[in-house]
């Protein structure tokens, strides 16, 4: 089933991956028919590993995260596939059971810290309540740990700030409190959706360093959704590139960022303005991602792909070995009539 690059053997321990997503399919029934928002999405995340998920707006990144934490917005529903946490299926659990797993085993970090924090309670109270819901610890112990967590996320003078209300913190500090909240019940898996997009580069660097350290030290598995490729390059071990509800490419971060094999990943990386020089013209991708109701037959990228050939317009590509990554692209099927273009080959 899982090809080697899907599961990074170097990271898996005896127990295997913490998260396994298998052929996930999410649908939205609408008046004009059923829309497929996620189609055949598969990946694993090992303990201590950070999987970056990138792609254009609307590609399905948040949807994948929402499906994993059991918070798909109705009428969206999982229509196929499985999600396993520590080998146990969680995609078909009743709401109450999933709610308990969400606090204890999966921590979620969303983009806007204000929607996650309760403005009426001190940050200390929010932390202790979360911990005591999931861990069997005394009030004293919970308060000590709350201060410890605030220190851990880099809040200065944590013992004094623990009794502050969210509005007394700056934006960057609030986002760090949200992260402490997601971590304090010591989840095995963290799903972070654009955790630093709203922050300035200076604060972003602090938060990224913290998440990375936690994954390393506590062995937490992390799914990091962002469209900031710089954040991915420094934080992720592997990257999944999504396009129109599918995984276009998945592999080790260095390979995907510096030597992408899928034509879409290649276009995405080439669009990033370089910091170290000025260029006359930024390479990019012509056109726009199709709407869910208008995804072309065959390869979803075929309307924008510079390498498109006949087969792409009829047959849907499978996830294929490229040598360094896996890509859903017919160029990598030896049976295809077209060869891999020079541009996409290893240097």
């Amino acid at each position: 089933m899982a090809a080697p690059i899907l599961s990074t053997p170097s990271h898996s321990r005896d127990g295997g991956p913490i998260l396994e997503v298998r052929n996930l399919r999410v649908e939205f029934p609408t008046r004009r028919g059923v829309l497929t928002a996620l189609d055949d999405v598969s990946f694993d995340i090992a303990p201590g590993e950070v999987l970056g998920v990138v792609g254009e707006s609307g590609a399905g990144k948040s949807m994948t995260g929402a499906a994993i934490i059991g918070l798909l917005e109705p009428p969206g529903r999982i229509a196929g596939g499985q999600i396993l946490l520590n080998g146990r299926r969680i995609d078909n659990l009743p709401y109450e059971q999933m709610r308990r797993i969400r606090g204890k085993e999966i921590g979620a970090i969303f983009q806007d810290p204000l929607t996650t924090l309760n403005p009426l309670y001190t940050v200390g109270r929010q932390l202790t309540e979360t911990m005591q819901t999931h861990l069997d610890i005394s009030d004293r112990e919970a308060r000590q740990r709350a201060i410890g967590w605030l220190e851990m996320v880099g809040i200065p003078a944590a013992a004094q700030r623990v009794d502050s209300y969210p509005h007394e913190f700056s934006g960057g500090m609030r986002q760090r409190v949200v992260i402490a909240l997601a971590l304090c019940a010591e989840p095995k898996l963290i799903v972070a959706d654009e955790p630093t997009t709203a922050l300035d580069v200076s604060i972003q660097a602090q938060i990224i360093a913290l998440l990375k350290r936690l994954a390393r030290e506590k062995g937490t598995a992390m799914m990091l959704v962002t469209h900031d490729m710089g954040v991915i390059a420094e934080t992720a071990d592997r990257v999944a590139v999504m396009y129109a509800g599918c995984i276009a490419e998945i592999g080790p971060v260095r390979e995907v960022v510096k030597a992408p094999k899928h034509p879409y990943s290649e276009g995405l990386m080439a669009s990033i303005p370089p910091l170290d020089r000025k260029v006359d013209h930024l390479a990019g991708i012509e056109g726009a991602m199709p709407r869910l109701s208008a995804i072309p037959k065959g390869c979803a990228f075929n309307t924008r792909c510079p390498h498109v050939f006949d087969r792409c317009r009829h047959e849907r590509p499978e996830l294929l070995e490229t040598g360094t990554t896996l890509a859903t692209c017919w160029l990598y099927d030896p049976a295809s009539e077209k060869q891999v273009p020079e541009l996409l080959k290893d240097d």
Partner: peptide
């Protein structure tokens, strides 16, 4: 100089990103 040093390293040269200390 601090702003430049805080930019993520996309080239993965191993350059350490140094956050601007303190709050705005």
């Amino acid at each position: 100089r601090a702003l430049m040093e805080a930019i993520p390293d996309l080239e993965m040269t191993g350059r350490q990103r140094i956050p601007v200390g303190g709050e705005v």
